[in-house]
Simulated assay, not measured.
Amino acid sequence: MNQNTKQLSAAQAEELLKILKNRFEQNMNRHTGMEWVKVQAKLEASPSKLWSLDDMESTGGEPDVVAYDQKADEYTFFDCAAESPKGRRSICYDHQALEARKEHKPKDSAINMASDMGVAILTEAQYRYLQDLGNFDTKTSSWIETPAEIRKLGGAIFADRRYNKVFVYHNGAESYYAARAFRASLKV
Rank of each mutant, 00 (worst) to 15 (best):
N2I: 00
T5I: 07
Q7W: 13
Q12P: 06
A13N: 07
A13K: 00
E15F: 05
L17P: 01
L17G: 08
L20G: 03
K21C: 06
R23P: 00
F24N: 02
F24P: 02
Q26E: 13
N29M: 09
G33A: 05
M34W: 15
E35H: 08
W36A: 00
V37N: 09
A41D: 09
A41S: 08
K42L: 06
L43D: 04
E44P: 03
E44L: 07
K49L: 00
S52D: 04
L53G: 01
D54W: 13
T59P: 04
G61R: 04
E62H: 11
P63Y: 09
V65W: 08
A67K: 10
Q70V: 08
Q70D: 12
K71M: 10
A72Y: 06
D73R: 03
D73E: 13
E74Y: 03
E74N: 06
Y75I: 04
T76Y: 09
D79K: 02
C80I: 04
E83I: 05
P85W: 10
R89C: 09
D94Q: 08
D94H: 10
H95T: 05
H95W: 09
A100C: 07
A100G: 08
E103V: 12
H104F: 13
H104I: 05
P106K: 13
K107Y: 15
D108N: 15
A114M: 06
A114E: 05
S115W: 10
A120N: 12
I121M: 09
I121N: 02
T123S: 15
Y127T: 07
L130S: 05
Q131L: 07
L133T: 10
F136W: 12
F136E: 02
D137H: 06
D137W: 08
T138L: 11
K139F: 14
S141D: 11
W143A: 02
E145M: 13
E145V: 08
P147H: 11
P147D: 07
A148E: 15
R151S: 14
L153R: 15
L153I: 08
G155I: 10
G155F: 15
F158R: 01
F158V: 07
D160K: 01
R161A: 11
R162K: 13
V168A: 01
G172W: 14
G172V: 03
S175Y: 09
Y177N: 07
R180W: 05
A181V: 03
F182H: 01
R183I: 02
A184V: 06
V188W: 05
V188D: 01
V188G: 06
V188Y: 08
